[in-house]
Each structure stands twice: as C-alpha cells, then as structure tokens.
Design a protein around this nucleic acid. Structure first.
Lengths: 239, 239
DNA sequence: TCAAAAGTGTTCCGGGTACACCCATGT
DNA sequence: ACATGGGTGTACCCGGAACACTTTTGA
C-alpha cells in the first residue's frame, strides 16, 4: 500500500489523531437518599465535564491510563482524583471500544465499585454530583449505556454472591441488609426467609451487640471476610 | 511539572517505548480429540511466535487493534488472519493490563470463542497447533493465566446458559449434547435427567430426522435461535 | 396495653437426582 | 436372542416461598 493523498499521511504531532488511547472509568454505586429524607436509592457520582468533547455534560469519573500503572490502579487513582472516593469493592466491568464512541479513538476499560455510607465524602470536590441510577439525564459519550450495564451486573451479582455488604458499614442488622437487597432488586423480601438464607450462607458472624432505638432491639452482624473466595475464578489479582 | 532530565523527554519516534498499545487476543475452544482417536477434549489453537518477545513460544492468536475497527471486529479479524478460523460464538472475556505482562506496555482485550467441529480448518495455516486446555506448556506472556480464566468462564457459563451448542453442528442427538457437557464439566450426567432438563429449557427443537448407526436410532435436535437472549443484559452489540 | 419489628416453626411446592423400567435397533 | 443405547416413569430430597405464630421493645 502506498500513500497517495494527504489524507493518508499521519499528522507529525501524534497526540490523538492517529493513535488509540486507553482510558479508565468507574461506575460507583452507593445506597443513599437521592433527595433529602427520601428513601434509599441506588445512586452514583458523576463528574461534570469541563472541556470538549461533551463540555458541561455529566460523565463517569475516570481518566487516562498512565503507562506505569495497572488497570485497577488507574481506576482507583482516577476515582480518587475526580471524586475523592475510595471504594470498598472494585471489579472490572467491560472494555468499551466502539470506533465512534468518542471523536478521537478511545478504548475505555470500565470498572464498577461499591462504597459504604461512611466512605462517602459529601461535597468533597467540585463538579461532582450524585444521581439516582435510574432515569439519568443524557450523559457524555456512551456512558448511559455503560451505567445500564453496570446496574444489570449489580442486580445479577447480588443474586448469586454476597457483595451487598460492600454497601453497608462494618456492623449491621438483618433488616438493614435486607433493605439493601430490596433496594437493589426493587422487590420485597420475606424477613423470615431472608434471615435463614443469609444465616445458612455462612457469610455472617453474629456479634453480641444490638441496635436499639425502635421496638425490639436487633442483633448486629458482621461479615465473614474469609468467604467471598471462589467467585472470580483463577483471577485473583486485578490487572 | 517541568522536564529536567532526558528520561523525561519522550522519544521522537513514538513506536512503543512511551505509549500504551492495545492488543486483542482470543481463546478459542473446540471439542476434539487431542491425540488421534482419543476421547473428545476441550482444546484450543495456539500460534507459535516468530519474533521477540517470547520467540518460539506458543501464544494466543491475536494482534494489534486497528484504529478504525471495534474490539470485537479486531478479535474476529486477528483470529482469521492467524488461524483461519471464524467462530460461531465470540464474547469478551477480560482486559489484561498489568504493567509487567510484556516488555513494552500492552493492554490486551481478550475474547473467548467457541467453534463447531465443521468450522475447524485442519492444518489451514502454518505455525498453528492444537492443545488440550488442561496441562498446557508454558505460553508467552501471561497467556497461561488467561486460558485458565477462560476455561473457568466456560465451565461456569455452561452451568447457567445454553452456549454448549456453539461446540456442535446444526443437528445433534441428545447423547452428543450430553457428551459436550460431560467433557466440559468433567463428570457423568444422568441421561434421563439430562434429557428432561434440556427439553424443559425450551432451547431445543426436535426434528424428524434420526441418527442411525448403532442400536436404536436417536432423534436429531436443532437449537432454537430465538432463545439466548436476556443473558448479557442490556449490552446487545459487541464493542 | 398496643403497635411494630425481631425472631421461630411449619407447610407447601418445584426442580434436581437416583434409579427402575420399557423400547428399538444392529449384530 | 441379546447387548446396548434411546427414552419414560417415579420416588426422594432439598431449598425457596408463604405465612402463622411468639418475643421484645418503645411509646
């Protein structure tokens, strides 16, 4: 193949026009009221873009992959830089690489994360806003589609694994844990059956403490860290 | 930040030393005897590397992502170029991006694929070899780890979805389908129960044809293409 | 004392498993 | 005829769903 026209000649300044760049973004889920004193909702933080493309629109927190960091590290770093958050759970979601998903060629490695209420930094950094995961406004790039996929994965994985504790503090009552499941799955769960199921799963450690306040005090539980294994298969360390 | 030493100055020739490149590789599974007249085994084709790094070692088929193609297209293309194969099933597996997984910085988007016996091109292209998925020799880069993960995903997904037909031809007997499951899962399955389970799943269409040859003829089945949906969630098109 | 949530007991149902049994064909 | 795999019937077990019931607190 020989170059015949100027269109075939790559720019001398090889910034973006002729290379594929790798970005890392993260969908961060938390459970919080989306309006003051409203019910708990699956919510996520978004960052307002301050430059083109899509200036002014909301987008997933993220940034460029540095040449000397792994993908998971890049997710953690860009997350902290843009939102100030450090999630308790972080897992790779998918690599998005459609040619037209950005004006320049960008492959985005997207992670998804869970954070506990006590890890949420309120109004930590400018240009960050929290949104309910359902009914988002139009986001930059293909980020609406990405959030939908992450939400599907969250709902799916809650069914067969015990990640829900990533949305709770260290100690919690069974009612609080059940509330997490009900919010994510968007349906009521029988308290009696729910109790037995999580108790039999072996992932809960009862403590001697109780949460008091209204009605009969409820026993507090803690999560058994030794479980969780045998979930992602032979892949132990994030890449 | 200001540049103070030569180490900080990027090379004018921006080939590989200061950029992250994106590669695409695929783990292709087929069911075939690994030695002539042996039992059916989960096997995959590997390509012998003809240049450094890891010259002479076996590696997953793959190549560089072209700037004008999506990730899935790149997987199909590099697959065809290196092995001559065109799989019936192709799905993204994981993005591998550890800093030290290659001498230069490479992020690999790995796909996994299934191919039917009739799609296998025997001795089609030089430098391609077939190996049993268990007990591979040491491969180039982190490819052993990648294959193990793909194998885990295959075994896992066979349990809850109906992808096994991606390893069979258009028409097949229940015994042949059961053989696929038994080979992948490495355990015997009850013929009676297996029949009822796949029949009740609604994914099989009985034909009027029978496979004769030994003993009582077995009815041939075809797969219902209309199913398979509601599996990868809202992600319909590969990116 | 009453409302409401915590916690227990019991029944029912459906799907998976084990296994006995009949059917149809090649040799 | 008989061995062998194709195909059917059935009993059992276990986990989830439904729901009645008792316990313990705050108000």
């Amino acid at each position: 193949m020989t170059r015949t026209t100027v269109e075939d000649t790559p720019a001398v300044d090889a910034t973006a026009s002729d290379t594929t760049r790798v970005a890392v973004s993260t969908v961060i889920f938390a459970l919080r009221p989306v309006e003051a004193d409203g019910p708990l909702t699956v919510a996520l933080p978004l960052v307002r873009r301050t430059r083109d493309p899509h200036e002014g629109q909301w987008a997933l927190p993220g940034g460029w992959l540095d040449i000397r960091e792994s993908l998971g590290s890049a997710a953690s770093r860009t997350l902290a830089e843009t939102t100030g958050l450090a999630p308790s759970y972080l897992e790779q979601l998918y690599a998005f690489g459609a040619v037209d998903r950005s004006p320049t060629r960008v492959v985005s490695i997207v992670y998804w994360a869970l954070i506990r209420p006590d890890e949420i930094v309120e109004d930590g950094i400018e240009n960050v806003g929290w949104f309910g995961a359902e009914g988002l406004p139009p986001l930059a790039f293909d980020h609406n589609e990405i959030v939908d996929y992450a939400l599907w994965r969250l709902r799916n994985k809650v069914g067969y694994s015990r990640i829900a504790h990533g949305l709770l503090g260290d100690e919690f009552t069974l009612a609080e844990l059940r509330e997490v499941y009900q919010t994510i799955l968007d349906r009521k769960l029988d308290p009696a059956n729910f109790r037995r199921q999580v108790e039999n799963s072996g992932t809960l450690i009862p403590t001697d403490r109780y949460r008091t306040g209204s009605h009969r005090p409820a026993r507090l539980y803690r999560y058994n860290q030794d479980v969780e294994l045998a979930d992602r298969g032979p892949l132990s360390t994030p890449h």
